[in-house]
Amino acid sequence: MLVSKKHRSSVATLGPKQAIQVQQELESVLSKLESQSGASRWIVFEHGTTLDCGLKACCVDHLHLHLLPVDMDLAAELATRLSCEAKRIESLQDLRQVRESGADNYIYARNPDGKHYVLTPPAYSSQFVRQVIAERVGRGEFWNWQNHPLEGDSVQTVRMFRDAGLTPHAIYYAHAIEDLSPAEVKESIQAARSMLSRHCPQATMLSMYEILEKSLREIDLPEDKLNAYLVEAERKFIEASSLLVVDLSRPNWQYVGSLMEIVYATEAGIPVIAVVGNAPIQQRRWLRAHVTRFVKTVEEAAQLAPSLLQKQSQPR
């Protein structure tokens, strides 16, 4: 998806200059995706609203355009199913006319040939366009992302966007947190982030402690389901990352969780930098078979990271 950083309800609620900017961003993103993915036929759609508040047909009240590598005449298909006209427009800027006409909601569609259309049916179900496209590609039962989140597809999409240079590389930082106070854990995370950002300014660092700290207090699940949730969340974040930096430098410590993160990264083909300090853990044959590079400090890991990220950016 192409999502607005600042809150806007839809493209139709933008001013002319903003709509032109979105149009330029859209064309740039599509060009990069076509080059990276090998798919040259893309469709774009928006479940849009002309309202700043009130009843809306779109289920997410924030400007977002869906981009999919599907070769179909989306505008014609929607017009047939909704029994309404797919009106040809020249650009996203023309969606402003929908708001001026008095319509509350609309569907914007861009066909693979680059032509733009807008439909203003009197009523349609939430996520209607997703249903149409899902049926077209033979996955009709999976149209509802809430029932079928398809995390594996999401990971592949993140990696495709990353390889196309549309999103930054993610560095997953793993470390032991047991026997440390929350303040000590946060301090170590910030120290690692500072070093990594200094050497990899275009990358972002992920910490599962930061990601899950709040949600774990709010999730009410039996222990077995909570454990399954933690493992699955951890695996997906690692799979969507470009590099794992794991700190194994605490002496005489059993790094059970961190060792599992190394396994997940290895299975996903993600390079691993292990920070071992003076600990003898580096001599373990199993560990040497899974770690890409060993270093003594997080600072050394940060210095090494750019070269490994560069390799990840190369075509596979």
Rank of each mutant, 00 (worst) to 15 (best):
T13A: 09
A265Y: 07
F128S: 03
K225E: 15
Y173P: 05
E218A: 14
V263P: 00
A164G: 08
K56C: 14
H290F: 11
V231Q: 13
F45I: 07
L244S: 02
L226H: 03
T204H: 08
K236I: 04
T167W: 00
Y264G: 01
C84Q: 08
E90P: 00
E100W: 12
E218T: 12
Q202E: 15
Q23M: 03
E77C: 09
E141N: 11
R162G: 04
E223S: 10
F161V: 00
M205R: 00
M1W: 14
A274D: 05
G102I: 08
E239H: 08
V137P: 06
Q127H: 10
Q282F: 13
W145E: 08
I273P: 02
E184V: 01
S249R: 04
L67G: 04
G165E: 11
N147Y: 08
G140R: 13
A233G: 09
R285G: 02
D247I: 02
A240M: 05
A302F: 06
A19V: 05
A240G: 14
H175P: 01
Y106H: 08
V132A: 12
L196Y: 09
G138Q: 09
L95C: 06
D113V: 01
R136E: 08
I273K: 06
E300T: 09
S4I: 05
S215M: 06
I262D: 08
K5G: 02
S194K: 15
D52T: 15
Q282M: 13
L244Q: 02
L63E: 12
V291E: 03
H66E: 13
H116V: 02
T266N: 13
V98G: 06
A265Q: 03
V11M: 11
V246Y: 04
D163C: 05
C200E: 12
G257Y: 01
H169R: 10
F142W: 14
Q24V: 02
S126M: 09
L226M: 11
I89T: 12
I219E: 09
Q254F: 13
E25N: 07
I262F: 10
A19G: 09
P280M: 15
A279T: 15
L30F: 01
E25L: 01
T50H: 08
H47K: 04
H64L: 11
T167R: 13
M260R: 10
E100G: 00
K56Q: 15
G277I: 08
L55Y: 14
L119V: 13
H148C: 04
E299W: 08
A274V: 07
V256H: 09
S307L: 13
L82E: 06
A240H: 02
P271S: 04
L308A: 05
I89D: 12
L259P: 00
K6N: 12
H66P: 01
M195I: 01
A12M: 04
A240D: 05
T204P: 00
A19C: 02
V245E: 04
Q312R: 15
D73A: 09
K186R: 09
H7D: 12
R217L: 10
E184I: 02
Q23G: 14
R316M: 10
R96W: 12
